[in-house]
Design a protein around this nucleic acid. Structure first.
Length: 516
RNA sequence: GCGGGAGUAGCUCAGUGGUAGAGCAUUAGCUUCCCAAGCUAAGGGUCGCGGGUUCGAUCCCCGUUUCCCGCUCCA
C-alpha cells in the first residue's frame, strides 16, 4: 500500500475510533484545529506523563512550571516575535510568486536613487573639478523630478507602514506601476499580513483594554520566571525548568492533520548552564532525548538527528529529532543551544538583572540555555503512526483475514484492559462486572458483552487495548480467567486474584522510566 | 493565495428532473464455550450551504463553503 494511503487511513481511523476529531465539525470545521476524543485525550495525557516524569521525577535538578498563556506584551518584543514575523505579503496572480510588499516598494524606490546617481555621475564627468554636487542636486531638473517622486513615495510608504495600512501599500504598488519581476504583470492580490501571533483584547472594557498576544511558544514563560524559580527553589546551575502547555501560531499552511496546528501543545525544558559549557550540555541532551524516544520500542532505525546548518538568530547549535512518518522523516523535537539571548533580552527590556551568582566561579553571569522542545501533538501522531497496523491473518480454513490493530506501548494505551464474559449467561457477566469493579480504581477498564467474542477482541485491537480478560465456564470452577495479548493474540490462563499485579507490572510507567 | 477534483446515513459508496438506497457500523432482542462480516427488529439523511431555471431540483446552471491533490509560503 502506498505510504500516503496509510496516512489517510490513519487519519480516518483516528476519527472513527474517537482519537482525533476536526474542530467545530458541525459548522464545517475550523482550519488546522483539531479536538481530541475520548481515547485521544487518554493517549495524550499518557504521553505528557511520560515526558513530565522523565524530566521532573528522574532529574533532581529539573523542576516544573505552569506559566500563564497571557503574558506582558513587551515579552514578545524582547523575544523578537513581534518584529520578526509580521511581514506584509502580496502575490502576483500570473507568476504565482509571493513577495513582501514593503520590499517591492523599497526596490522601486531604489531605482529612483539609481537614476539620480547616474545623473550625478554623468555631470561629474562633464564638469570635472568644478562640479558642485549639492548645487547640482538643487538645480538639475531631472534630479529634482526624480527626487520629488522618491520623496513622495517614501512619505506614503512610511505613513502606510507605520499605520500598517495594507490597502495603501497595495495602492502604492499599483500607482507606481510596479510589476512582478517574473511575469512582468501588475495583476496583484490584496496585501496580507501574515502574523505569527494571535492577538486579543486584555481588559474588560473596550476603552481600557490593550492588545496582548496568545503565546507562540511556552519558552518565554520559563525565561521570565527564571529568577523566581532559581531563588525560591534554591536552584544551582546547572538546572532546568520544564513546562507543558498550549501555544498558538497562525500557520500559513494548514492541511497537515495534527502535525501542524494553529493551537498546539508543547513540552519544553530550558536547561540553564555556565557560559562556555553549553555545547557539552547540548550533546548531553541530544543523547538523553533520543533515548527517551527509542525507549518506546518503535525501532531505532526510524529516528535520526537533523543538525541545522542555518541557525536562528538566538542559537549557536541546533538539531531536530526526526521520525520516519508514513509521509517521510519529519521533525518531532527540537534541541537548541539558545545562548544567553533570551535572558539578555529580558534583562535589557525589563531592566531586571537576569543573572546568577556562581559561588564556584565567584562571579555573576547570564546563564546560557539548552532548550529541548517537543510538540505533544506531533508526538501523538508519531506514536499512533508507529502503532497503526493492518495485519494479514491466515485463518484455519485457509482463508485470509485482516485486522486493524494499534500496537501502542501498554503504558500509553488509553484503555488498559477489556473484561468480557465469553457468553452472556450462566453468571459469567456477573463475574466480569465484579472484576471491572475491582480493577477500575487502578486501570482504565472496559466491560463488553455485545457480539461474538472475536468481534469484541477486534474492537479492542482497533483502539489499542493491550489486554483482554475473558471469563468462561472454567472460571466458575477454579476462579481463573484467560488474558489475551493484543499483539500476538495468544492467551494465558491466570487466577483472578493475581490479575491486578500482573496488569500493573505490564502497564506501569515505572517500567518504561527505568529504561532511561 | 492560485489551479484541479470532490461533498448523498456514523463509515465506504450507489442512484434518478417526480418527496432516497446498499453494505458495514449503532441500539434492542435471539443465538453463540475463544478471534470481525449468524437471525430478527429499530433508529438514523430537508442528498454541504445560498440563489436561479422548472409545474417540480439530490440531479441542470451560477455563487459560496469545506475537504483532498498539486504549486506557493514557512520560525
Amino acid at each position: 500500500m502506498a505510504q500516503e494511503d496509510v496516512f489517510k487511513k490513519l487519519v480516518a481511523h483516528c476519527k472513527e475510533y474517537g482519537y482525533v476529531f476536526p474542530s467545530s465539525e458541525i459548522y464545517d470545521g475550523l482550519s488546522a484545529v483539531y479536538d481530541y476524543g475520548q481515547y485521544g485525550v487518554e493517549l495524550k495525557n499518557n504521553i505528557k506523563k511520560y515526558w513530565w516524569d522523565s524530566m521532573v521525577l528522574l532529574h533532581d535538578n529539573i523542576v516544573g512550571l505552569d506559566s500563564a498563556i497571557f503574558m506582558h506584551p513587551t515579552i514578545w518584543k524582547a523575544s523578537g516575535h513581534v518584529d520578526a514575523f509580521n511581514d506584509p505579503l502580496i502575490d502576483n496572480k500570473d507568476s504565482k510568486k509571493r513577495y513582501r510588499a514593503d520590499v517591492l516598494i523599497e526596490e522601486h524606490m531604489a531605482k529612483f536613487e539609481e537614476k539620480i546617481n547616474k545623473e550625478i555621475e554623468k555631470a561629474m564627468e562633464r564638469f570635472g573639478d568644478a562640479f558642485d554636487e549639492k548645487k547640482f542636486r538643487e538645480t538639475n531638473q531631472r534630479v529634482l523630478a526624480n527626487q520629488e517622486k522618491l520623496d513622495e513615495i517614501n512619505a506614503r510608504f512610511s505613513k502606510a507602514m507605520n499605520a500598517t495600512d495594507l490597502q495603501e501599500l497595495r495602492q502604492i504598488i499599483i500607482d507606481n506601476e510596479i510589476v512582478c519581476p517574473i511575469s512582468g504583470t501588475r495583476n496583484w492580490t490584496e496585501v496580507k499580513q501574515f502574523n505569527l501571533m494571535f492577538s486579543t483584547e486584555f481588559g474588560s472594557t473596550a476603552e481600557g483594554s490593550s492588545k496582548i498576544y496568545l503565546r507562540p511558544e511556552t519558552a518565554q514563560g520559563i525565561f521570565v520566571n527564571f529568577l523566581n524559580v532559581q531563588k525560591t527553589g534554591r536552584m544551582k546551575i546547572p538546572f532546568g525548568i520544564a513546562q507543558i502547555g498550549k501555544a498558538f501560531r497562525n500557520e500559513i499552511v494548514a492541511r497537515q492533520f495534527i502535525f501542524r496546528m494553529r493551537e498546539f501543545e508543547q513540552m519544553e525544558m530550558q536547561f540553564f548552564v555556565q557560559p562556555g559549557s553549553e555545547l557539552d550540555w547540548f550533546r548531553h541532551w541530544k543523547e538523553i532525548r533520543m533515548k527517551w524516544h527509542t525507549a518506546l520500542g518503535f525501532g531505532d532505525e526510524n529516528y535520526r538527528f537533523h543538525d541545522h546548518v542555518k541557525l536562528a538568530h538566538y542559537a549557536n547549535a541546533a538539531t531536530d529529532i526526526e521520525y520516519k512518518f508514513p509521509f517521510g522523516f519529519k521533525e518531532v523535537e527540537g534541541i537548541h543551544s539558545r545562548t544567553d539571548f533570551d535572558l539578555k533580552q529580558h534583562q535589557q527590556y525589563s531592566g531586571k538583572k537576569m543573572q546568577y551568582f556562581d559561588p564556584e566561579r565567584g562571579e555573576s553571569y547570564i546563564p546560557y540555555v539548552i532548550e529541548t522542545s517537543i510538540g505533544v501533538d506531533r508526538m501523538f501522531l508519531q506514536v499512533i503512526s508507529a502503532a497503526y497496523l493492518e495485519e494479514e491473518l491466515k485463518k484455519e480454513d485457509g482463508s485470509s483475514d485482516t485486522r486493524v490493530v494499534l500496537r501502542l506501548p501498554s503504558f500509553l494505551a488509553p484503555v488498559k484492559l477489556a473484561v468480557m464474559p465469553l457468553v452472556k449467561k450462566d453468571g459469567l457477566p456477573e463475574i466480569a462486572e465484579k472484576i471491572v469493579h475491582d480493577l477500575k480504581f487502578d486501570f482504565n477498564c472496559q466491560y463488553d458483552d455485545k457480539d461474538s467474542i472475536g468481534r469484541r477482541y477486534r474492537r479492542q485491537d482497533a483502539i489499542g487495548t493491550p489486554y483482554c480478560i475473558t471469563i468462561d465456564h472454567q472460571t466458575i470452577d477454579d476462579n481463573t480467567v484467560t488474558i489475551r495479548y493484543r499483539d500476538t493474540m495468544l492467551q494465558e490462563r491466570v487466577g483472578i486474584t493475581g490479575l491486578k499485579d500482573i496488569i500493573f507490572e505490564k502497564v506501569s510507567i515505572a517500567t518504561l522510566l527505568k529504561k532511561l
